[in-house]
Design a protein around this nucleic acid. Structure first.
Lengths: 237, 237
DNA sequence: CAGTGGTCTAGACCACGTC
DNA sequence: ACGTGGTCTAGACCACTGC
């Protein structure tokens, strides 16, 4: 994928502040990377479609000013979430081993060589969330040596493995618990729950896929904002 | 713009049900429209990026079944939401009259002198959302004279009654439908659903309290963001 | 005027799925 | 073996902005 190579090189140099706000033109990129113009063009267009840059015919391609936003659900450690709810968090590690990802997950991670970590999270002793996470084995295998009952996986990825979070895709659904999941919570099958599916990227490489199943009787997503500002909180009740 | 011509032709024929779920291939389109493959390709790719279709290498391009989603933070007319989903919206007004608010609502509005409007919203004839709204009678009573089957209440408040939206409090829950609500959707009791509760303020005065109940099998909240940008995509699953 | 992005062409090779 | 989508090439013409 030549266009990906170019795009990543651009992202890297953007992060380094190598350009002012004026990115190289299509022809310039094509020359320096020894590639056709259509290929260079695609790299630039992806940056545009992801909000990094904008283009003006006849003028050029320009970096977009940074905007700070977190999406509708924040990515943050369970421990912080518990602290806000004023409850004592605890974690039981159910699985932590190399295991091939199922097809749907492998499709999103680009490989089925993965590590599976699943955990049951409790607040004040009550199980409230079930986490099922696949991590790319080539990048994250060493995570199996960490203390997964205590540490935030996201913090391990960022701090220990130097895999900064650069992009998130996520989706929230309302579901009915099946027999198996309900058992973990001591609820009956059919109980309502949230299902949050999330893929986290570092420099456009997918790193981990995670599914959170949260009890509908314990979780709400609460939000208080003015049109200009936003702050979304995950609340447990 | 040849690719736009082709894309629009495809959308038209999709709406007419001219294809099953299998769209023409790139080569096929290129031939029938007398255009190069890259141009035909672009038409198909735009359909994919807008959620109409998905592509599988080696197999073909397939229509996506339509579901409807909504950005969590967005406050916007149902009609706009429907337009983006490419579905025909319709509304049945169930109630529109002066009625005292129940205690929980009165607490949030600061009064129980209210007007109740409840509506059933449909997309392509299918009931997908139930809206129950209390508005402060002192500010909003005149809304009962408007066409509540057509107009956006939020737009009426802002444009007609000059009550700008300055703050929003909202909360999203996962619930199981009770008998009564399930009946509106033609679902069985216990089916999963979202419940969004929202209070809207003008200059820190609460104006209206509203509850939306959305079918869990038709709504998802999807989000794709990075630290630099946010683009809440109105994609369906 | 030379440079930019927007569009388009007519080929090409590849990996993959289906038959 | 054949068709599919994914990628890439080396050209081309256009409308537009800057100097």
């Amino acid at each position: 994928m030549k266009y990906l190579r170019i795009k990543k090189a651009l992202l890297q140099r953007i992060a380094d502040g190598a350009y002012g706000d004026h990115l190289p033109s299509e022809n310039e990129l094509a020359d320096t990377h020894g590639v056709s113009r259509m290929t260079a063009r695609r790299a630039l267009q992806e940056l545009v479609s992801e909000g990094y840059a904008s283009r003006v015919p006849g003028r050029g391609t320009f970096l977009q000013p940074r905007r700070f936003s977190q999406g509708f659900l924040r990515v943050r450690p369970f421990r912080e979430h518990a602290a806000e709810a004023g409850a004592a968090p605890s974690t039981r590690v159910l699985t932590a081993e190399a295991r091939r990802a199922p097809a749907t997950v492998a499709g999103k991670l680009g490989t089925n060589k993965t590590v599976l970590v699943s955990r049951l999270r409790r607040l004040d002793g009550e199980p409230v969330m079930l986490e099922t996470r696949y991590l790319r084995a080539d990048l994250c295998a060493s995570i199996l040596h960490e203390d997964l009952a205590q540490d935030s996986i996201h913090e391990l990825l960022v701090d220990r493995l130097r895999l900064p979070l650069t992009r998130v895709w996520q989706r929230l659904e309302a579901i009915a618990l099946d027999e198996g999941m309900a058992a973990w919570f001591g609820l009956s099958a059919g109980s309502p729950a949230f299902r949050l599916e999330r893929v986290t990227y570092t420099n456009d490489d997918p790193v981990t896929w995670v599914e959170y199943v949260m009890r509908g009787d314990r979780y709400v997503f609460q939000d208080d904002f003015s049109p200009q500002r936003e702050s979304v909180r995950e609340v447990s009740r």
